[in-house]
Amino acid sequence: MLDHTDRRILEELSQNSRITMKELGGKVHLTGQAAASRVVKLEDNGVIEGYTIKVNEEKLGYPVHVMLNIYTKNTHHQPYLSFIKTQDEYVINNYKISGDGCYLLECKFPSNETLDQFLIDLNRHVNYKLTVIINKL
């Protein structure tokens, strides 16, 4: 079970995973060594699975950001899954969901024209409902 200090460590690392253990310790009222020990314990217990970076997709040339609710046409999903594996340039996340649809697909595109072609190709395998993301708040 996580205590308040562990939760604060997770909050701080979520905001800046490059923080030094000394800085982290200061923010959560521990020594750097004690903070480092807690982080190792969180990693060993699988609470922290890895570290990542936040990328600005627009600055990389992908200003079109969309979410697609995916509705499979039958119970055989492999054609869709195989298609998605070939689209790693555009697919950010593919979540299997319950509720409205079978999958929730998050994608980025360099242009609306590229998005349009992707949707044409996607529709060979599944139906979808498109949501364009305007801004992240």
Results as ranks from 00 to 15, higher is better:
Asp3Trp: 01
Asp3Gln: 05
Thr5Cys: 00
Thr5Met: 00
Arg7Leu: 08
Arg8Asp: 08
Ile9Met: 08
Ile9Pro: 01
Leu10Asn: 02
Glu12Asp: 06
Glu12Arg: 07
Leu13Ser: 00
Ser14Ile: 03
Ser14Cys: 06
Asn16Arg: 12
Ile19Cys: 02
Glu23Arg: 02
Gly26Leu: 04
Lys27Ile: 00
Val28Pro: 01
His29Gly: 01
His29Asp: 11
Gly32His: 03
Gln33Asn: 09
Gln33Val: 14
Ser37Ala: 13
Leu42Trp: 00
Leu42Ala: 02
Glu43Met: 07
Glu43Leu: 09
Gly46Pro: 05
Gly46Leu: 13
Val47Arg: 03
Glu49His: 02
Tyr51Pro: 01
Thr52Pro: 03
Lys54Tyr: 15
Lys54Val: 15
Glu57Arg: 14
Glu58Ser: 12
Lys59Asn: 10
Gly61Ala: 02
Gly61Trp: 09
Pro63Gly: 03
Val64Asn: 06
Val64Thr: 08
Val64Ile: 11
Val66Gln: 09
Met67Ala: 09
Thr72Trp: 10
Asn74Lys: 10
Thr75Asp: 14
Thr75Lys: 10
Thr75Phe: 10
His76Met: 11
His77Tyr: 11
His77Pro: 07
Pro79Ile: 15
Pro79Asp: 15
Tyr80Glu: 02
Leu81Lys: 13
Phe83Thr: 03
Ile84Asp: 02
Lys85Gln: 15
Lys85Ile: 04
Asp88Val: 03
Glu89Trp: 08
Glu89Asp: 14
Ile92Phe: 13
Ile92Thr: 10
Asn94Trp: 02
Tyr95Gln: 11
Ile97Arg: 15
Ile97Leu: 00
Asp100Glu: 15
Gly101Ala: 08
Cys102Arg: 13
Leu104His: 09
Leu105Asp: 04
Pro110Tyr: 08
Ser111Pro: 03
Asn112Asp: 12
Glu113Leu: 14
Glu113Ile: 14
Leu115Ser: 05
Asp116Ser: 13
Asp116Leu: 04
Asp116Lys: 11
Gln117Ser: 14
Phe118Ser: 06
Leu119Cys: 01
Ile120Gln: 13
Asp121Leu: 12
Leu122Glu: 04
Leu122Lys: 03
Leu122Thr: 04
Arg124Gly: 11
His125Gln: 03
Asn127Cys: 10
Asn127Tyr: 12
Asn127Phe: 13
Tyr128Gln: 02
Thr131Asp: 13
Thr131Gln: 14
Thr131Met: 13
Ile133Ala: 14
Ile133His: 07
Asn135Gln: 15
Leu137Trp: 10
Leu137Cys: 12
